[in-house]
Design a protein around this nucleic acid. Structure first.
Lengths: 336, 336
DNA sequence: GTCTGGCACTCTGTGTTCCCGAGTGCCAAG
DNA sequence: CTTGGCACTCGGGAACACAGAGTGCCAGAC
């Protein structure tokens, strides 16, 4: 259907358009990409490519521009992910290694990615649900108020203030803390609810009301906080590009829910997800593409990160950067 | 120098320009603001105002536009802060009351403020330095690694992983925790360094190396974290306004340091700070104004918040919103 | 002395027209 | 199947004119 040369033409169109941001014509194309054929031949091929929907012209008698479908083919079959340079790798490594806590890791990552790709970077905080309890802490704040602190093995710390139904003595709290830690330490968060239910039955009668209050807050923390936090950086990179609806994009970026869907569900292992223009779920973001990847320590994917830019982006380079950053972050998290 | 009527004219120019975003002419002005005088008179007044630098014309024979100096006079003497409507107040209250922890309070605040003012909102996290230690927690993670968690009375939680020089038994850590809490509980963060120094001397010899490691990390947490975190929201509100250099502003917003300086130092008590156009410290932000206020529980100002928008903003309304939100946040923090 | 109406002047922004050039599609010949 | 030639199309920029809003200034009225 599409012979070698037509694919080469498509590749050339994408590459030229990406680098010049102007519709590319047959003549310029034949020259710059020594294809060994004349502009007229290129024109014929282009006509076919257009008929099949891979490229289009903004108006009669202008050059051609890739369509979403064209970019898709390019990404799937015509391009190779471009690895980062050694210098870039070292830069990533040293920059991320300086992080002091989880928050810092995520913040640094998002900035790094934005700077590296010159686009908008998006990073999701490591998911709670896949990690395990490392420690539960109860801190008395006032007579009837304690703070519940939950530390996970991914370094995340969740805290909630709990209002107690009764005044409770310190040592009963200490006891409760001990029990909690024995039961929950190392427990996968996804299995905490069962464990907690089990625990409630085994507690002595007099501890029940207080324990129930605390445990319900604990469960809430896990469930409600299903709103995984996402941050972005590099919005400034959007300015000056009028091909995207700036306002819509900025609005989308501030909607956690939209961002969630944008990064997409965990796909198979460490594969990169690319969503091009109209492929992506939010209508304000046609005109933009997403390159995303999962990251995590070891095998299990903890969360996702990616970048967002105009459909007209340099996919090979962007994909290389995203993949590299995802890997490094995984390493950092595993090691801390 | 400037009689009553000229001031009225200036006020009218500002108000009209703010609402229409177009240079305002003498005729329209005389009509809309029944000043009781003819356009010609207004023209004369305008000529004087221009000569004094309060207004200017974009080009010969266009209407007048306020200068930064004009806005300044308007804010200082010609306008009154406009209080929020009852509905708005209730909305703020219920929205903020739903927050579950400090992070949530800050996030909600920044969104609220952005939505309320339809501008970019900026909120600084409550400063560590003014708060006091409520609890210190040491959580063993591995043989030679523990997590240090510091909880302040403003609800902020800081965490750091500490690598220990030696393997340490659990009960020595427990002991250390107890000692730390006795010494530091209620201690103002600003006075922690002395207290720590004092503590180091009183510890038994064999605990020194471990304790020193932990304490130095603790001090770091306080000092290094002098980079008070600032977040913003509502960037989408900037789009569509070309009077500001979009790119510059977005870049500035992503620079913590610039944001810091922007919000300004704590001023006297709960007063509002207004920085107009060229008055503000960063050159990329001429063309924008900042309205900021301190917030805190009770008397002491914990941090600052504000909004950033085009110099051509509705100052009375914006100031009202900022003041109101600052107050409510203060209340919420005091109560939690 | 201050205000007012009148008048000539000066701009910007918009709409029109025109033309150039890049790029195309098609066709006939190699 | 490829190529060169050719007529055609359309966007974008330059030149131009024009209407409208707004000004500054002046002479007369209160």
């Amino acid at each position: 259907m599409l012979d070698e040369r037509k694919l080469a033409v498509l590749r050339a169109v994408v590459e030229d358009y990406v680098s010049t941001n102007e519709p590319v014509g047959s003549k310029a194309l034949a020259e710059r990409h020594n294809l060994g054929v004349s502009p007229a031949t290129v024109r014929n091929d282009m006509a076919v490519l257009e008929e099949q929907g891979y490229i289009t012209q903004p108006h009669t008698s202008a050059g051609r521009v890739p369509t979403d479908k064209g970019y898709r083919l390019f990404v799937d079959r015509l391009s190779q992910i471009k690895p980062l340079s050694g210098a870039e790798r070292r830069a990533i490594e040293t920059f991320l290694a300086g992080a002091v806590d989880l928050d810092d890791v995520v913040t640094r990552t998002v900035r790094l990615l934005a700077q590296l790709t010159r686009q908008v970077a998006v990073v999701q905080y490591p998911s709670l649900i896949r990690s395990a309890v490392r420690h539960v802490e109860l801190v008395p704040l006032a007579e009837r108020r304690i703070m519940l602190v939950l530390i996970t093995n991914t370094g995340r710390v969740e805290q909630r203030v709990v209002e107690l139904p009764d005044v409770v003595e310190e040592d009963r709290i200490a006891h409760l803390r001990a029990v909690l830690n024995v039961c929950l330490d190392g427990c996968r968060l996804s299995r905490v609810p069962e464990t907690v239910a089990d625990l409630q039955e085994r507690l002595p009668e007099e501890d029940r009301p207080v324990a129930n209050t605390i445990l319900s807050v604990l469960l809430e923390t896990l469930v409600d906080r299903h709103d995984e936090k996402i941050i972005f950086a590099g919005a400034a990179n959007l300015a000056g590009d009028f091909s995207v609806g700036l306002r819509e994009v900025l609005e989308a970026l501030e909607e956690q829910v939209v961002l969630m869907r944008l990064l997409g569900e965990a796909s198979d292992s460490a594969a990169l997800t690319v969503r091009i223009g109209s492929e992506n779920p939010y209508s304000g973001l046609h005109g933009t593409s997403i390159v995303a990847a999962g990251y995590g320590s070891g095998d299990n994917e903890l969360a996702r990160l990616g970048v967002l830019g105009p459909t007209r982006m340099d996919y090979p380079v962007t994909m290389g950067a995203v993949r590299a950053v995802a890997r490094y972050v995984g390493q950092i998290l595993a090691g801390s």
